[in-house]
Design a protein around this nucleic acid. Structure first.
Lengths: 220, 220
DNA sequence: GTAACAAGGTGGTCTGACCACTTTGTTGAA
DNA sequence: TTCAACAAAGTGGTCAGACCACCTTGTTAC
């Protein structure tokens, strides 16, 4: 029942080594990675093992491969793995609930942090927000409003976790709320945040989420 | 050879076919999957291709493999996905400060959740907690008190993330607080939680963290 | 009856080969 | 000189077959 830490999986080791390599060589998003054959030689393993590791990372959306060209470090916004994953994982209702709830934990924390720190309210990002809310389409709301809030907290780790969770939880959009209603709620949320009213801001958020996430159905 | 014109990745196709197979044959969590060789024959692909698909799924925590035994459908509880991603995330996280702050986000959320849900306060775990606080050694405090709180929320994903963050935020303990002081603070925290005073409980928590995490240094 | 051994099944790894595709360099004709 | 056509090299994609290490199970021998 133990973890067999002694004989850890080879392809996991390779992934770890790849991470080190990416860090050492300062490979940025979009940059090309060494070829499979070069990696195999460098890491002293077979190309088969390298490929198993790369395929895993590809499914996670960490890398992209182009036949005839090479392997590239992916922009972490392109996680198409969600489809594959959701059909598996989301079978368990509790899992969906956990993901959504955890995402909301980060969102509430960000709202609280921003609201309670006056200096964060002075950021330029908030200036155009109110007008955008009414001008642009509603997709902006779910996408950017919360994200900008988390960005404002300057906690990049929280941002990344949130982004991942959003990938898992934010696919379905048969929400029982009109665009107009949503804009009204979010505007109010923004107002309360600007005024530094943590309690009211969080109340707005809960109201918003109740409308958006309230009727989330389970995936079969 | 036949599907080579298809632009979609072979190993993704295999994963999809595996999903169908799992659904058709009603394979449950913990059940054994067909062997790699059988799958290769059944799906008319090479064992290499099957393995690349299986390794990907393993990294996602969807399956588990045991050498000499076989491949088993995994329980979602084992969010290995999170672990792997976290190692990536950590490379980019600016400092340990992000980790600590994110961990505290989850801890505050758990305290709030438990305090605001009276039914969670009736759990047996809280009964012996108070006495343990004074009887056992102080290591218990940091280890178990918060953990039990998060467990009480029944959000396993949050628990998993927290556990990871705890590992990353290190076990450094040059804390400027005596055991006696810490016991007093945590006892108060526990009391306020039991009384359902969210605000006071969180205040205790902040006080606690200020003492424990206040002088944390950054890594490297 | 039981301990020791043997055989088969399974995942883990490696080698070498070929294919499909892209880029790059070279050639050769206009 | 220009540039289109071709050739070569590099890369990911796939495959077959071979061992190895480990586990289970059945058989043997005591």
């Amino acid at each position: 029942m133990q973890n067999s830490q002694s004989s850890s999986k080879r392809f996991l080791d390779i992934i770890v080594e790849l991470q080190s390599l990416i860090k050492e060589q300062r490979i940025q998003y979009g940059d090309k990675l060494p070829s499979e054959r070069h990696l195999a030689e460098k890491l002293q393993v077979s190309r088969t093992a390298v490929r198993e590791a790369l395929r895993s990372m590809e499914l996670l959306g960490l890398i992209e491969t182009k036949r005839g060209e090479g392997t590239f470090l992916s922009d972490f916004k392109k996680h198409q793995l969600v489809e594959v994953l959701s059909t598996f994982i989301m079978q368990q209702a509790r899992s969906v609930q956990d993901v959504v709830e955890t995402r909301m934990i980060h969102e509430r924390a960000a709202i609280t942090a921003v609201t309670e720190q006056p200096e964060l309210l002075l950021l330029p990002v908030w200036k155009g927000m109110k007008s955008k809310l009414t001008e642009e389409d509603a997709v902006f709301l779910r996408e950017d409003m919360v994200r900008e809030t988390i960005i404002a907290t300057e906690n990049r780790l929280s941002l990344k976790i949130w982004f991942l969770l959003k990938q898992y939880s934010g696919v379905s959009f048969d929400v029982a709320i009109t665009e107009k209603e949503e804009i009204a709620i979010v505007s109010e949320l923004l107002d309360e945040m600007m005024k530094g009213n943590t309690k009211q801001a969080l109340a707005c958020y809960e109201q918003w989420m109740n409308r958006v996430e309230g009727e989330r159905r389970e995936i079969e």
